[in-house]
Amino acid sequence: MTGPTARLLALLSLLQTARSWSGSELAERLEVTHRTVRRDVDRLRELGYPVEATLGAHGGYRLVGGTSMPPLLLEDDEAVAVALGLRTVAVHGLPGLDDAGVRALTKLSQSLPPRLRHRVRTLGAGAMTWERSGPDAVDPDVLTVLAAAAANRERVRLEYETRDGRSGPRHVEPQQLVSVRRHWYLVAFDLDRGDWRTFRADRVRSPRATGARSRHELPADDVPAHLEAAEAAMAPTYRADVTLRLPPDVARERLRDHLGDGALVPEGGGTRWRSAADTVEWLALRLLSIGCPFVVHGPPELRAHLDTIHERTRP
């Protein structure tokens, strides 16, 4: 044993196995005296590890559950297994655990030696989850870099692909990584544009922390409001083309202030409504609230959204 610290870590590693250790076994394993074992056990207790000691022929020392979570020591294969599990939680999401999964993955990734990080990436690349595969899947390595930069208040250079498919460099100061309906968003100050921006994490490529400190900070209370405004601005909009089984005057009355720059045109015994631009969610809500039969001519996204609503509401 090289020294007290290494010995203490070795003792903790032994106690984390699911068994009791006699004082003689520990002394033999650590190559120390019984007195040193007792002193090291007391030191672990001072550090918050709940080490229980029992007397008798089958007694010994073991680590039990306490009131708080102390640091753990993991073997190489255990660390790889935990990292792979956290990558799954971070990317594919579990309700209420997305953010915790990324924070835990970031902490673990920063402490893994390069050889284990390589193993985690290799094994992660060889696995897949059927129900979550798709173009919006995010690279867990991207998440860990962005989360670490936000926590460390460090600037990042990255490549970002916009909604229209164009890609270019960005120089940002990450503020917070947020999970919203199974999508990850980065709230950051864009140094090139001189303003706060929200980035889809699945469109971020090759993020690299620069080591330079961030100088801008968005108050925590302002983050939700910023996300709401950014999400509304990023949501795609469409113009509905719908035939309403209503006379034009009744259709106009029921749409009222929601007509905007849309148009109502008489068509046979009904009305053709060409709406103002808005999201498919809002357009579907307006159609369902009008209270009449209708036929959707377009766009396909609106028809698909209404089909989804119908499937969810069928008995």
Score class of each variant (00 low, 15 high):
Ser24Trp: 07
Ala127Trp: 11
Leu47Ala: 14
Trp130Arg: 03
Ala304Gly: 00
Ser109Ala: 14
Gly66Glu: 01
Ser133Gly: 10
Gly101His: 10
Gln16Ser: 04
Ala225Lys: 08
Ala151Val: 12
Gly3Glu: 05
Asp77Val: 12
Leu186Met: 11
Leu287Phe: 08
Trp184His: 11
Ser179Leu: 10
Glu159Val: 06
Arg197Glu: 11
Leu86Pro: 10
Ser206Asp: 11
Leu146Ala: 08
Pro236Gln: 04
His226Ser: 09
Val138Arg: 04
Glu154Phe: 10
Gln110Asp: 14
Thr308Ile: 00
Ser22Leu: 04
Ala6Gln: 12
Glu217Thr: 15
Glu301Trp: 09
Arg163Ser: 13
Pro174Cys: 08
Pro4Leu: 03
Arg62Asn: 03
Thr122Ile: 11
Val265His: 05
Arg213Asp: 00
Gly93Thr: 04
Arg239Asp: 01
Ala230Arg: 05
Ser22Asn: 00
Thr33Ile: 11
Arg170Val: 02
Phe189Glu: 14
Arg197Met: 09
Trp282Asn: 13
Val280Trp: 07
Ala263Gly: 02
Leu63Ser: 02
Ile309Thr: 06
His226Val: 12
Asp77Ile: 04
Ala225Arg: 14
Asp202Phe: 14
Ser206Arg: 06
Tyr61Gln: 00
Arg121Glu: 10
Arg103Pro: 06
Glu28Arg: 15
Leu73Gln: 10
Gly291Asn: 11
Ser13Lys: 09
Trp282Gly: 04
Leu105Ile: 15
Ala100Asn: 10
Gly59Asp: 00
Gly168Lys: 02
Gly59Ile: 06
Glu46Asn: 13
Glu253Asp: 12
Val120Ala: 14
Ala104Gln: 15
Ser133Trp: 03
Arg256Ile: 01
His297Ser: 11
Asp141Val: 15
Val145Met: 08
Gln175Val: 08
Arg38Phe: 07
Gly3Phe: 05
Leu105Glu: 15
Leu259Arg: 00
Arg181Tyr: 11
Leu288Cys: 05
Leu47Lys: 04
Pro224Val: 00
Pro299Met: 07
Arg254Asp: 03
Leu63Gln: 01
Val295Asp: 14
Val102Ala: 08
Pro219Cys: 04
Pro236Thr: 05
Val178Glu: 13
Glu78Phe: 01
Glu281Gly: 09
Arg45Leu: 01
Thr88Ala: 06
Pro174Gln: 05
Ser13Ala: 15
Ala104Val: 10
Pro300His: 14
Ser109Asn: 13
Leu186Gln: 07
Leu73Phe: 00
Pro70Phe: 08
